[in-house]
């Protein structure tokens, strides 16, 4: 058990932190939502009612979609784009999808390679792109969820302001939708750009995300 926890500590700790912070967001969002209701002369709602509301849904989904977009872009773009000196980049001479031998697929698969890496055909093509595709799919679904929850939350505000609600298609053209979307995208893109560039010159001893402390600034695609 102890060994299992140690061997999976990265995923477990981030998963646990996610749940704790999501719960924190629910409590803070609930308090904020009820403050607004009180100023509008309405009664506060229960926590259960809030976490099933469009308001909570859009706040969660707008952040999720941008995170998965970030991963999707990073995974796909790092196939062709490189950054000299960055541990986030692969070697400068490996631009592109690389050869079957380098990727250990088909006849070059190892004994312990996943079966779908060995079989060839559609399965290997799918498996070869599965990480990016799943990230991309979660991004699209989260963005869709943002738009659906977003139009409901937006319309709640519209009605509170004595204005007409809008349809989903109209909402996609509203500044509220794009403001929520783009404010998240810009922060994710800044984070990726910062990590890619700062990791050229800065080190974090022992971190998988950093080059070894003594590695030269010019060393590319080197991680601890």
């Amino acid at each position: 058990m102890r060994r299992f926890l140690r061997d999976n500590s990265l995923g477990l700790v981030f998963g646990l932190l996610f749940l704790i912070v999501l719960a924190g967001q629910a409590f803070a969002g609930h308090a904020d939502y009820n403050q607004r209701l009180l100023t509008e002369g309405l009664e506060p709602v229960s926590l259960g009612r809030y976490v099933t509301s469009a308001s909570f849904g859009v706040d969660v989904a707008e952040n999720w979609q941008s995170e998965f977009l970030q991963f999707f872009l990073f995974i796909f773009l790092t196939v062709w784009l490189v950054q000299k000196g960055s541990p986030e980049s692969k070697s400068l001479d490996k631009v592109g999808r690389e050869t079957a031998e380098e990727q250990k697929i088909g006849e070059y698969a190892d004994e312990d390679s996943p079966r779908w890496a060995r079989t060839g055909g559609l399965r290997t093509t799918l498996f070869s792109n599965s990480l990016g595709l799943v990230m991309g799919a979660i991004f699209v679904l989260s963005w869709l969820a943002q738009s659906i929850a977003g139009v409901a939350a937006y319309n709640e505000e519209q009605l509170a302001d004595r204005q007409d609600p809008v349809s989903w298609a109209q909402y996609l053209r509203e500044p509220d939708f794009w403001n929520r979307t783009l404010q998240n995208w810009q922060s994710e893109l800044l984070a990726v750009a910062s990590m890619t560039i700062l990791a050229i010159y800065l080190r974090q001893r022992g971190s998988s995300q950093s080059k070894p402390v003594g590695s030269p600034h010019t060393a590319t695609g080197v991680e601890s």
Binding site: E43, A152, N155, Q158, L159, R162
Partner: peptide
């Protein structure tokens, strides 16, 4: 008639009414 969260709008031939949810 549209309902979003704690708010509703009811459209009638001669009027539009806004409502809110209370206990």
């Amino acid at each position: 008639s549209d309902v979003y969260g704690q708010w509703a709008q009811v459209r009638l031939t001669e009027d539009t009414v806004f409502l809110a949810a209370f206990p």
